[in-house]
């Protein structure tokens, strides 16, 4: 009898083990499946160590961040490729929305023609969202782009074949083909800086503190403070990408 029970137990154990392996494999290939299986809604960051907040109330559209980014990350200044860029939204009396980002905003913005008709206007800086459920890393055929253990999405310049599938998969237009290295490129949150305890080049260059970067879950972290006290939003929440960049004052017209 005992033997029988034991055998039954082992066979159950075997089934559980097999099930676990199958579930684990499925989970590995479809991470979002597992993440969404839990009925609780997660709003906090679990995987990432870092956080980034953009304060659209503060941005003055000077373009310093775009310039700093291109210099720091060796992205050709004269080409239409950007790791970060700034958009200006203007809404007029007739509720017409105009969006513009001339040369990514690197040289600032011109004055609008019909200033007196504008009812609402603001700047929105954009950069890679380092999504927790990143569509770009998911589609890379060769495993050349990936999320680091501390939550930053990087591109391996030695493995990338340059198929551009990740560029297609990013809903935010944050990726591009690097004109010099001929591989996919994107914002790394200045991984070479933040891993040395510095802040990102764009944050450092911003004269008004419209960009805030820091660790999460650390006492007195400015990012943590904003995330726990302020009402923030993310870009394209319907895409289910779970971005790590949060926005203060994000208007519904922002794309």
């Amino acid at each position: 009898m005992a033997k029988m029970v034991r055998r039954r137990f082992f066979s159950l154990g075997g089934k559980l083990l097999a099930g676990g392996i199958v579930a684990g494999t499925i989970g590995k290939y479809f991470p979002d499946t597992v993440a969404h299986a839990a009925p609780t809604v997660r709003t906090g960051k679990t995987e990432g160590k870092w956080g980034f907040v953009v304060d659209t109330y503060k941005c003055i559209g000077c373009g310093r961040c775009v310039k700093a980014c291109k210099a720091e990350s060796q992205v050709p200044v004269d080409q239409e490729v950007y790791r970060t860029w700034v958009e200006r939204y203007t809404v007029d009396y007739d509720k017409n929305v105009k969006i513009e980002s001339p040369r990514g905003g690197i040289n600032g913005f011109p004055e609008v023609e019909n200033r007196e008709r504008i009812t609402k206007s603001f700047f929105v800086p954009k950069l890679c969202n380092q999504c927790e459920n990143a569509p770009c890393t998911k589609v890379c055929p060769v495993g050349a782009t990936y999320t680091t253990p501390d939550g930053v999405v990087l591109v391996d310049r030695e493995r990338c074949v340059g198929c551009s599938y990740c560029i297609q998969a990013c809903p935010y237009g944050a990726r591009f083909k690097h004109p010099v290295f001929k591989v996919a490129d994107k914002c790394t949150w200045c991984y070479h800086r933040i891993s040395k305890g510095m802040t990102t080049a764009c944050v450092q260059a911003c004269p008004v503190g419209a960009r805030v970067f820091g660790e999460i879950g650390v006492p007195d972290s400015p990012v943590d403070k904003i995330l726990s006290e302020e009402r923030v939003n993310i870009l394209k929440p319907e895409a289910g990408t779970m971005p790590l960049v949060d926005y203060l004052g994000l208007d519904k017209v922002v794309v």
């Binding site: 998911k138 055929p141 060769v142 495993g143």
Partner: peptide
């Protein structure tokens, strides 16, 4: 002709990413 790193094309056979729709190519 499209790949910007055609010499690395074989990577798709070496380290195919199981979650990529393209990796099966």
């Amino acid at each position: 002709l499209h790949l910007s790193q055609p010499l690395r094309a074989f990577n798709i056979m070496l380290t195919p990413n199981p979650s990529s729709a393209m990796a099966g190519f």
